[in-house]
Design a protein around this nucleic acid. Structure first.
Length: 504
RNA sequence: GCUCCAUUAGCAUAGUGGCUAGUGCACCUCACUUUCUAUGAGGAGACAAGGGUUCGAUUCCCUUAUGGAGUACCA
């Protein structure tokens, strides 16, 4: 029996959770649930200078909205806490020391200024400064200095960092579930800082220690971590621990042009890149899927197909179906361009599937928020409008005329529809409507159509101006449905208004 | 620059050593709705390039090109 699957999503609370991060969380969630495992959230806040207020709450709320909550985390708790690295601070030091004792790490006293200077000099010569085997003995660290010198520096309280002593002359084989086998020459790696001058570990140390302590079995993360994989594997080895399995997910790219999707792309191109709306301290607002009216099911379905597919032709998946179908082996290797149009298609689909009573309730709320009061039965018009709606707000877009009589007539359409003989025709229609007792769509339709054919008038001459009179534009459902819902009195009044408008 | 990763139509992708290379979005046409949507039916559109290996390569190998990531006392 293998051990229980435990995966973690480890965001850094430096701002709102990017949609790419949401996908990483989703894949972690699906993998965990598929294998009956646990999904853990861990806040990686080892960089205190980049901490942003509210970011952590945002992350949790976003996952809850999408219905993919964690089993363990800073809010839900668990047996492996604390789940914030800042609260685990005291823990890391001893592991860094352990590495020094075993000869896998060393103290380095080089100041940031000195290292920056080295980098600048190298850059000027077109070279890259790497802190590793080829120069570590020439720099200011415990490998180059005598024991007494090191002790003196340490005792005097001089600031230092702890660096990993990357092994030399080794071809390290790496395995990734998505990419398969890779290998890297350890000589190109640098001696990464594991423990910072401020007493905090870097991501690299903290993530290995925590993943080990939290008994993480699979690390599923973005491709931007692939270059760090060698270091991480080496760290597990240095500690003598079993490494988890790794899976690096392809990046999400902008819809057009080059480069990865960034937070500024969204509002520039008219789609959200965040699950929830986010307001910065400076007052900038980034739109979110939730506030834009997307359903969580649509966002999830869209997201899961970015970099994964089931290998069948099924495209619509409920969360349960995703859990059943998901497989890391079917994750793609190359970056996926984000397609906002496809998102809308999913959204349209899920809106159609939504319970009609629920949709009506949401639309009623929308109307209330807008301050619209009406005698019209909203539950009657929702089914009429819904198939052409992608968002709840589209119902208003499509059917506002049910609640407000048109005050103007679409210019282009009225040129086409309002002709010289139109007032006369509409006047006849008014008389016709007045005479209908059973004011239902079918009866009105029969009466009007019958009248048109028997008088040989031509449908266009009647239907177009009639629609324009009732709606104000060339849109909306069947004109007779509209007439019926508006009621005789209102329908007649709108037609009269149009007649008067034309007479001016 | 260096290291690692990738490359099927505008986008997301399926797939195979030999088939008309499949699907969805978007696009075009028609039908329906005498409007606009939605829907239905059709249609156009792809294996980055060049070398190998092979009886045969989109599929395997190499090179090039393009794209991406990393290259911090950030995650």
């Amino acid at each position: 029996m293998t051990q229980k699957v435990r995966v973690r999503f480890a965001p850094s609370p430096t701002g709102p959770l990017h949609i790419g991060g949401v996908r990483t969380a989703l894949f972690n969630y699906l993998f965990a649930k598929k294998h009956g495992g646990d999904f853990i959230i861990r806040i990686e806040d080892t960089d205190q200078t980049r901490y942003v207020d509210g970011a952590e709450e945002y992350i949790i709320e976003a996952l809850n909205w999408l219905n993919i909550p964690a089993n363990e985390g800073p809010v839900s708790g668990g047996n492996y806490g604390p789940y914030r690295q800042s609260e685990r601070k005291d823990l890391y030091r001893k592991y860094a020391d352990q590495l020094i004792e075993s000869g896998n790490a060393y103290y380095a006293f080089d100041t940031s200024e000195a290292l920056d200077a080295h980098r600048k000099n190298h850059e000027a010569e077109g070279k890259t400064f790497i802190y590793n085997w080829h120069n570590r003995l020439k720099l200011d660290n415990s490998l180059a200095l005598s024991e007494a010198e090191v002790k003196a520096k340490l005792d005097s309280g001089e600031e230092y960092v702890i660096r990993f002593k990357t092994p030399q002359d080794e071809t390290l084989p790496l395995t990734d579930i998505v990419r398969g086998a890779m290998k890297i020459d350890t000589n190109v790696l640098d001696d990464k800082v594991l423990f910072k001058g401020d007493g905090m570990p870097t991501y690299h140390l903290a993530n290995i220690v925590d993943d080990h302590l939290m008994e993480i079995t699979h690390v599923i993360r973005g491709e931007e971590w692939l270059p760090s994989l060698a270091l991480h594997v080496l760290l597990y080895r240095a500690f003598g621990w079993d490494a988890p399995q790794f899976a690096h997910l392809p990046l999400l790219m902008k819809p057009v042009g080059k480069g990865k999707l960034s937070k500024r792309d969204g509002d520039k191109m008219g789609f959200p890149v965040f699950p929830l709306e986010w307001k910065t301290a400076e007052g900038d607002v980034f739109s979110g899927y939730r506030e834009d009216g997307y359903l969580p099911e649509a966002v999830l379905n869209m997201l899961v197909f970015l970099g994964w597919n089931p290998g069948t032709e099924q495209e619509i998946f409920s969360l349960e179906e995703l859990v059943a179908a998901f497989d890391l082996a079917r994750v793609n290797k190359s970056g996926a361009k984000f397609d906002p149009e496809k998102t809308k298609w999913f959204q349209h689909h899920y809106l159609q599937e939504m319970d009609e009573g629920m949709l009506t309730a949401q639309f009623k709320k929308f109307l209330k928020d807008k301050g619209v009061t009406t005698a019209v039965d909203v539950s009657v018009i929702v089914p009429l409008l819904k198939e052409r709606a992608t968002f709840v707000q589209d119902l208003w877009e499509q059917g506002s005329f049910f609640f407000e009589a048109p005050s103007t007539y679409d210019e282009k359409a009225s040129k086409k529809a309002f002709k010289e003989d139109t007032p006369e025709i509409l006047q006849k229609v008014i008389e016709l409507l007045q005479g209908i007792e059973d004011f239902t769509a079918t009866t009105i339709s029969d009466e009007v159509k019958g009248w048109i054919t028997s008088n040989d008038i031509g449908f266009g001459k009647v239907m177009m101006p009639l629609r324009l009179a009732l709606v104000g534009e060339m849109k909306g459902p069947d004109v007779f449905e509209i007439s019926s819902i508006l009621g005789k009195k209102e329908a007649v009044s709108r037609i009269e208004k149009a007649v008067n408008f034309m007479k001016q």
